[in-house]
Amino acid sequence: MLKFIKGNLENIDGVEIYPIISLLIFFIFFSGLFWWVFTAKKNHIEEVSNIPLNDDTFPTNDQDHE
């Protein structure tokens, strides 16, 4: 199976650029994410991390608690 794929890819002109582009996209995305995490304000991170704990965000159904 790998020979079949490799054989077909060797016949395509310019195919070697796609792994480089993929690596650049991966590197830029995670570098940006890394930068955002370290520059994010602590208040914002605390507020967002408490969203699942807030009871006000989801309506409760009293019948489920009986």
Rank of each mutant, 00 (worst) to 15 (best):
I28K: 05
S31M: 11
G7D: 01
N50Q: 10
E10Q: 12
F58A: 06
K41F: 00
F4P: 02
V37S: 07
I21N: 08
A40K: 12
G32M: 03
F4K: 10
E46C: 06
L53M: 04
G7Y: 02
F38R: 15
E66D: 08
E47P: 07
V48L: 13
I17S: 00
D64L: 09
I12P: 07
L9M: 07
N43C: 02
P19W: 11
N54D: 10
S22K: 12
L53S: 11
G14D: 03
L53F: 06
L53T: 08
I20Q: 08
L53R: 06
G7T: 01
V48C: 02
S22V: 07
L2P: 00
Y18L: 11
I20W: 15
F29V: 14
V48Q: 06
I21E: 09
I25F: 07
L9I: 15
N43Y: 08
S22R: 12
F4V: 11
K6P: 00
L2Q: 01
D56F: 15
G7N: 02
L9C: 03
F30E: 15
N8I: 10
T57Y: 15
F30R: 00
F58K: 03
V48F: 06
N54W: 03
F4R: 07
F58I: 05
N43T: 13
S31F: 15
L23M: 08
K3L: 10
W35R: 06
I17A: 01
F26R: 04
S22D: 01
I25N: 06
K41M: 03
N61W: 06
S31N: 15
F29Q: 15
N50K: 10
D56E: 09
T57C: 03
I25P: 04
H65C: 10
N61R: 05
P52N: 00
E66C: 02
P59F: 14
S31R: 15
F29E: 15
E46S: 11
E10K: 13
F4T: 10
A40W: 15
F30H: 09
I51P: 01
P19N: 07
L2V: 15
T57Q: 03
I28R: 13
F27G: 12
T39M: 01
D56G: 07
E10W: 06
H44A: 06
I21V: 13
K6Q: 09
V48A: 07
Q63I: 12
V48Y: 08
I45Q: 03
I28Q: 05
N61G: 02
K42S: 12
L33S: 05
N61C: 02
E47T: 14
L9N: 04
K6I: 13
G7Q: 02
P52W: 00
F30M: 01
I17H: 02
I21R: 08
L24P: 07
D55S: 04
L24S: 08
L53V: 03
K42W: 05
E66Y: 09
G7P: 00
E10P: 11
E47H: 10
